[in-house]
Computed example of a mutant assay.
Amino acid sequence: MSDKFEKATGRDITGWMEFMREHGNPHELSHQELVKLASRGGASDWWSQGIAVEIERMIGRRQVGQTVTGSINASVTKTVPGEWTDVFEEFVAFMESRQLADAPRITATEKWRYWRADLADGSQVSVDVSDAKGKTRLSAKIDKLPTMEDRDRVKEEWRALLTEFSVTVT
């Protein structure tokens, strides 16, 4: 049976672990060293990061939802109809009406719009908005969660929030 790593790189995650062991002890390699090794093994930059993360999970260095620094995060996405720059403006107004953050930071590039804020519990949220082939993709990433137990609750809260927003999109 093929896994996502094999489909994308030609080598399944067990094969990547064997490759890592042939070139060093994965327990002793830093995240960046694992990334560089995966890259040398033929993985793209994006897949090299994913391989390194999965290897770290396999050796017990991190859990799902945990960053290389040990911080805990959660993410959810939602695709909605509409032109992405218009949807972003609607999202900003929607979030203002919810008063979840005192001073959100709004930035833009040619291909992305960002809504970022520090939340009362010390966590940080970044909502990235982009074109999804005629629709709009909203991706919320919540960093610096207080505990791993908060992760599922926060994911559900943001999933519900994005779903609530999706029914308001005109």
Results as ranks from 00 to 15, higher is better:
K111I: 02
S130T: 13
Y114T: 00
E90C: 04
A117L: 07
T69V: 04
F94Q: 07
Y114L: 11
G70P: 08
E54A: 10
K78D: 03
S75P: 00
R105T: 14
A93M: 11
F91D: 06
T77V: 10
S71L: 12
P104I: 05
R137L: 15
Y114P: 01
V127C: 05
D102E: 15
L100W: 12
A74H: 02
S97Y: 01
V80C: 03
T136F: 04
R61I: 00
K111Y: 11
L100D: 07
V125L: 04
A103D: 15
S126D: 13
V80G: 03
E90T: 10
E96R: 15
S71M: 14
M95I: 09
D86Q: 14
N73T: 11
R113L: 08
Y114W: 12
S71I: 00
A132S: 13
Q124I: 07
R105P: 00
L138Q: 07
R62Q: 09
D102N: 12
D118L: 11
I55F: 02
E83Y: 10
G65D: 04
T79Y: 02
T79W: 03
E54M: 07
G60Q: 04
A101V: 10
V127Q: 05
V53E: 13
G82D: 05
A103H: 12
Q63W: 06
A108N: 11
T107C: 00
L119M: 14
A52F: 08
A52H: 01
